[in-house]
Amino acid sequence: MRNGKALLTQTLKAAACTFCLFALCAGPVAAAELEETDSGAPSAMVMFPVTGDGTATKGSMKPAVFNHLIHEKAVSDCVTCHHTGDPQSCADCHTLTGSPEGNGITLERAMHATNIAPRADGNTPKSCVSCHEERYKAKQECAGCHNIVVPARDDKWCAVCHNANVTPEQLAKGSAGSLTAEENLEIATKSVTTKVAPEKVPGYFEPTKVIIDTLADEYQPCLFSHRRHVASLVERIKNDKLAEAFHYQPEVICATCHHQSPLSMTPPKCGSCHQTKIDPANPGRPNLKAAYHLQCMGCHTGMGVQRPANTDCTTCHKAKPAAE
């Protein structure tokens, strides 16, 4: 519960913000480059880690660029993110070191926390990462792969958002909180507009068919329509902005099945790591048969594919003709 003074301060800040916004929209500087938002907020902004004491941050991470325009279109209302009901900046309460206004939740946590405990009143706050997670788990097209793969939290993953091209001077100014709104918008717009969508490379869906016969014993070999599967996945997610941003390279989609190895158009075969019999040195690594089943069924289960049933063996690999 905020006290009256804090409320007053925030109201004043909001008023100041609105003033700035009007000033911005009127200004011809960078607004022409990006479509305007419905709410009147800047279409994109660089989220500088404001230290609060006028000093620059020492971190090596690039500041994140927040495309307000596409996020505004993706959510139902402003309260989804602005959970206090005021269109104030996240960093007002969630400071770098945490403050009583922000319930001690730091800016870093407010942006990245996952598995946020549901609140009793039903108004569970969201972070950027938790909202993205929620989205890909709920959407059928995404839920399949994301049921069997956990996105690696590596540098490339971070760089999807932390991609603002700022000069050291701009960073120093931004983190000290002395960068003007116009300057901020200019940098953000430049980062958003210069971003290139990943290209489709030739042979992306190859090979057309894969015959899985190394284990054929009880059943006939399995015929896997590789091209059809990949094409279908790519087709279904082509208009999804979130998928487009995080599948920053075409190989990222391949990495669902061809996991654990570096991104490549010629990834190693399943059998390169998964042995027919389980390796006692790696008891946690599934054997080859289980690896196939886990990937295929995990994805199908995640997407809610009803047929074939997981226990309907002969749909994927036909029964052997009875011996005469």
């Binding site: 788990k137 956990v150 008891p283 946690g284 599934p286 048969k289 289980a290 690896a291």
Partner: peptide, 28 residues
Amino acid sequence: SCTMDALTFGRRKDLINIARKRIAENPD
């Protein structure tokens, strides 16, 4: 005979680590 490797055989102490890892990777 498990087709899904739903049964993982190993030293008990290793299995606990494997289980912890799986929970940590997929807390949901």
